[in-house]
Amino acid sequence: MAWLVLFFMVPIWYLLRTALSTSDPSGNTSLVWRWANFSDSWSAYHSQYLRSFWYALLCTIFCIAIGYPLAYAIAFRGGRFKTLLLGLVVVPFFTSYLVRTLAWKTILQDDGPLVRVMRDLHLLGGQGRLLSTSWAVIGGLTYNFLPFMILPIYVSLEKIDPKLIEAGKDLYSNSFQSFRKIVLPLSLPGIFAGSLLTFIPAAGDFVNSALLGSTNTRMIGNVVEGNFLETLDYPSAAAISFVLMAIILVLVTIYTRALGTEELTV
C-alpha cells in the first residue's frame, strides 16, 4: 500500500499538478488549475492520438497473427525443444530495446540490401523506401512487442489438457473444429493478456517512430517527448499523458467487457 502511494499516487499527483499549470518559455510552471489544457491537447494533437491507436491496433493484430501460430507450435509441437524455443523468443531481451530498433534502421535503410532486393524484384518502386514509412514504424512495434504476445498465449495453450483435444475428436470434431471450439476459447485469456501487454505500451511508444519513421508518422509519444524535452512545455506534455492514460483505460474497459471477464477465470 505504502509502495503504491510512494511510486504511483505521488507521481500521478505531481503529473496532475503540472497538467493544470501554465509555463513560461524557460520551463517554469505555475499551478493555475487550467482544465482547458486537456481539451487543448486533444484539439492540437488529435491526429497523433488517432495514429498512435491505429498503429497500436495494427501492431496488436500482427502480433496475434504471428505470435499465436508460434506459441501454438511451441506448446503442441515443441516436444523436447520447448524450453529452447521459448528461450529463443526471449533471447532478444538480452540486447537493449534501442539497439534492436537501431538495427532495424540499418536493415531497412535506403541503400541497404533489403531495399535493393525489393527494388530489383519490383516490389518497391525505383525510389521506393522502407525506412520512414508508417509500415516501418508498425513493423518495428510488432517486432519489439511480439514476445509479450507469445509468452501469455503460450502459457494458456500449455495449460490445455491434450485429452480435451482427443475428446473433441472422439466427439466427431475434426482438427479445425476442435481448434475452434476447444483450443481457441481456452486460449482467450492468453490472447487477452497479450493484447493488453502489446497495445498499451505500443500506443505510448515513441522510439520506433523516432528511429524508423518520419514527421508523417509521429505518434503521441513523440509529442510528449518533444514537449517535455525540447519545447519545455511541461503542462501540455503532462496533459497529453493524462488524456492518453484516460483513453487507454476506457478502451481496456470496453475490451474486457467485450471478451467477457467470466471466460477469463477458467
Binding site: 480435451l164 482427443e166 475428446a167 481456452l186 471466460e263 477458467v266
Partner: peptide, 8 residues
C-alpha cells in the same frame, strides 16, 4: 480416465 470435460 480423468473425464476430459470441456472446462469452458
Amino acid at each position: 480416465q480423468q473425464y476430459a470435460l470441456f472446462p469452458h
